[in-house]
Design a binder for these strands. Structure first.
Lengths: 218, 218
DNA sequence: TAAAATAAGAACTAAATTAGAACAATATAT
DNA sequence: ATATATTGTTCTAATTTAGTTCTTATTTTA
């Protein structure tokens, strides 16, 4: 069994040769495994040759060849890879940022994808999501400010009281709290300066539900 | 394995034989790899023969044969791995989540690290950051709500008007807008139900500046 | 606790790269 | 077959790059 350092170096040598066709120099190796002196590399290579993982021509530069690779990974390496996998799992994914949506007077429809917005993968698992930049102050009393980025989960339906992206008459998209009132739908701004709109349910389509909010200062 | 020069020459020889059916001369090779003398080619070929990548008949012109080539990983796979590495680079980093901070009456000091909070790496580059969970409603008029997570950039100083984590008398930490007024410091809540505190500058230490805000709905 | 392994750095040795020139062997044209 | 051209070999020498060996410490592992 190899020590973690030996394993790491062997993997690096193997990877480099496979990718470039050339053997790395001791200096390159010391960079790769994070050493400041090449005498350590020399010792590691001695050990790998002794254990028959490497073959070399003594005193020849860049003459290493990988004889075989270990079947077992040192347990500390396994730990490291677990952490890396976790990091990958937590990595960002990009969702479309469709542009501005009115939190005041409706401005533009959700239509042409312009940019991407990166969010943690776990926050957008199990659904389709997109992002919008809030414009206006009609939701200010819910702490949704002009310039905030909201992440919306696509949905054709919403519960009473949800904050949704609502498409009115197939042309205006707006972020409002939604409530049902008989055959009508109420689109409720959260700012006393704005008035609730009452519309027949047929004119309003829910496009998604507010899922999270991001704000960057300065 | 090979040095970069050896590799380059071997590739050229192989390519030429494959394309023209005949081995290049030393002069052609020296052109191809950018040398001005063929003695260098001779040395490289010696090395390639020694490493068993070439075979030759001594003193016979254009008599080289390629024995083997370093087998490279397909470049598509290399690309994929590069992308994966990039994903890792773009991944989340975890910053300490120190617990709750009062946005109303000060509750607990910034002290014992409890949890971690994952944020996109790029948002916390160039500085030390930590996260706090907002408790209370004193900043509600700035859209900072109870339960929001705020990311704070460590700093001992702040500009007038910044929203900061302020430590009062070395024991209460609170999130407020800060303003200077002569020898005093004003800690301004953003909620009409709360009153601005005026304190001598000596009693207030800035611990960090509000950098970003995260809110999860439902 | 003893034996490996890890680590740094310096001093040293050796190999690789490069050039130029002279020369030797081979190939080709006449 | 011979002259000529082409090609490969050998040498010197300078420079750069690379590998080895040594000492000294620290850390890890058995």
């Amino acid at each position: 069994m190899l020590t973690p350092k030996q394993y790491k170096l062997l993997q690096y040598i193997n990877k480099t040769i496979k990718e470039t066709g050339c053997c790395p120099s001791f200096d390159e190796m010391k960079q790769a495994v994070g050493l400041k002196s090449k005498s350590g590399i020399h010792a590691l290579i001695e050990a790998l040759v002794e254990r028959n993982f490497l073959r070399r021509l003594p005193h020849k530069a860049r003459s290493l060849e990988v004889v075989r690779l270990p079947k077992l990974k040192p347990s500390s390496i396994v730990e490291e890879e677990k952490k890396r996998d976790q990091a990958l799992l937590d990595a960002m994914v990009e969702i479309p940022l469709y542009g501005k949506i009115a939190a005041g007077i409706p401005i533009e429809a959700v239509a042409n994808e312009i940019e991407k917005f990166a969010v943690p993968y776990e926050t957008v698992r199990g659904g389709q999501f997109y992002a919008l930049t809030v414009e206006g102050d009609s939701m200010i009393d819910m702490g949704i400010l002009d310039g905030d980025t909201v992440v919306i989960k696509k949905s054709q339906s919403a519960n009473n009281g949800d904050i949704v992206v609502a498409l009115v008459d197939d042309c205006e998209a707006t972020l409002k709290q939604i409530k049902r009132d008989g055959q009508d739908v109420l689109l409720i701004p959260k700012n006393d300066a704005y008035e609730t709109r009452r519309l027949p349910a047929a004119r309003v389509k829910v496009q998604g539900i507010l899922s999270s909010l991001y704000r960057k200062y300065q």
